[in-house]
Each structure stands twice: as structure tokens, then as C-alpha cells.
Amino acid sequence: MRAGTFSPIVELRRYTLHPGQRDVLITLFDREFVETQEAVGIEVVGQFRDLDAPDHFVWLRGFPDLRSRTESLRAFYGGPVWQAHRSAANATMIDSDDVLLLRPAHPDSGFLLGRDRPAPGNEAGGIIVATTWHLRPEAEAGFPEVFETTLAPMLGDAGVPILASFASEHGENGFPALPVREDARAFVWFSRFPDRAAYERHAAAPGLAEALRPHLARPPEVALLWPTARSRLRG
């Protein structure tokens, strides 16, 4: 395993918020829910504004394994910080159930993060791009190898950097109070660009759409994410 912090189980969480409430939630989250989750064994990987969806908040968190995930979630959501602030957090949200439970597509394809977190007020530069491919049932098992041997080289030739890649984790959700999309057959990969213009210059890898078509159950989802001031994963 590479040096650094690394989470073998990752949640990709996408929240739909009431209009005008995203910055309210981000301020609360960055102040109250970062170190307090990490104190119970949760890796807060990144928090983001979706640049194309003004009422969406996206964040990632990681765990060593499914058992640790269950224990850490029980500790945090049963603990004093969430109990003190949950009403304020929940008041910003319309929906918080769009959650993918993921594992690295290959042993070395998860996030590699530095241990230092930006201090409050340290505005992020650049964007993170999260691409979700929803797979046909018959394509799921073999798709990580297809990505590694065929699709990733196409992206590399187009100048697209691949930060990490993940596949759906189908283990039991040990904390059912927080639902996950248990029927998902997803492959999610992340890239980094200095700005939207740079992303648009490199987004269309020649031949990628044609190579993908036999594997996909529906069109890809692409989210351009602007890190919050305290996000560890940054553009």
C-alpha cells in the first residue's frame, strides 16, 4: 500500500438541500463535523459544492472496513456533537439518501491523502470531477479490469488525470439508519483540474464513449465539485 491515509471503504454522499441552504450546511459541517467524525475513526475525505447544482452538497468519507464503519457511525450519530447539531443540519436538507457505498476498484486505486487538513478560511483552488458509470449487471464483475486495461489508457492519452477509482461495495449496510443505494452497480472515478475550462478541454477522450457503451445501463453522471475550505481532497 502507498504511504499516506487510505480508506478501503468509501461513502459518496450527495445531498439535495433547501434553496439557499448549502453555505449554511457547509459552515456547520466544516466547524462541527470534521474532527469529531475523525475522532471516532471516520476519514473525512472531502466536502464539495456541486458547480452545476446550487442546492447540492457532496462529500466523501472513508473507513478501514465494514465493521469499523458500523462502530464509528454508531459512535458519531449517538454522540453529543451530532445530537447537539442534528436539527440544524437536517433543517437544511430535502434528501440525504443518495449514497453509494464503494471500495477501491483495485488494491492501489483508492485516495491517497496527506495527513494535514486546511485550516478554516483557506479557500480551495481547482475542481474535483466525479464520474459515475452505472453498469449493466453482466458487466459489473469484469469492469474494473476493462477500466484498467482499456479505458484508463484512453483517458491518459487525452490528458485526464485519474486520482482514484471505485466499484460498488455489496457488503451489508451495518447502520441502516443511514440508507445506501443497495441496488447500485456503480463504477466511480475521480480526476482533478485547475478549472472548468481545463476540464472541458480534456473531457472527451477519443473513442471512450464507444468503448463504454456495451457496459452502461444508463448515461454517465458527471459532477464538477469545488472543495470547501476544509476539504482534504482538493483541486
Rank of each mutant, 00 (worst) to 15 (best):
M1F: 11
R2P: 15
A3Q: 13
G4D: 11
T5I: 13
F6H: 14
S7T: 13
S7A: 15
P8E: 11
I9Q: 13
V10P: 08
E11P: 03
R14T: 15
P19G: 05
G20M: 09
Q21E: 14
L25S: 11
L28N: 10
D30G: 05
D30S: 05
R31A: 13
E32F: 00
F33L: 07
V34L: 15
E35T: 12
T36V: 05
T36F: 04
Q37C: 09
E38P: 00
A39R: 13
A39W: 07
I42W: 14
V44K: 12
F48G: 03
D50R: 06
L51T: 14
A53P: 00
P54F: 05
F57L: 07
F57C: 04
L60P: 03
R61A: 05
F63E: 04
L66V: 09
R67C: 01
T70E: 15
S72K: 08
L73M: 15
A75G: 02
G78W: 13
G79S: 05
W82G: 01
Q83L: 11
Q83T: 12
A84Q: 15
A84F: 00
R86H: 14
A89L: 03
N90K: 12
M93H: 10
I94R: 15
S96P: 01
D98R: 14
V99P: 01
V99M: 06
L101T: 12
L102S: 08
P107Y: 09
D108T: 12
D108N: 09
S109V: 07
L113P: 01
R115S: 14
R117E: 09
P120Q: 10
E123I: 06
G126A: 07
I128K: 08
I128Y: 08
V129K: 08
A130C: 15
T132H: 07
W133L: 15
R136M: 10
R136Y: 02
P137V: 06
E140G: 01
G142T: 12
F143S: 02
F143Q: 06
F143R: 03
F147M: 07
F147Q: 01
F147H: 09
T150R: 12
L151R: 03
P153Y: 02
M154D: 02
M154W: 00
G159N: 03
V160C: 05
V160M: 04
P161M: 06
P161H: 03
A164M: 04
A167F: 00
E169Q: 11
E172H: 10
F175S: 02
A177E: 13
L178P: 01
L178Y: 09
V180Q: 05
V180D: 11
D183Y: 07
A184D: 11
F187A: 02
W189V: 02
F190M: 00
S191L: 00
P194Q: 08
R196Q: 10
R196S: 02
Y199E: 04
E200T: 09
H202T: 03
A204E: 14
A205C: 04
G207C: 05
A209Y: 04
E210S: 08
E210F: 04
A211D: 02
L212Y: 12
R213E: 14
H215Q: 04
L216W: 10
R218D: 09
R218Y: 04
P220A: 13
L224E: 08
L224N: 00
L225Q: 08
T228M: 01
T228W: 03
A229H: 10
R230A: 05
S231F: 07
S231H: 07
R232N: 10
R232W: 06
L233N: 06
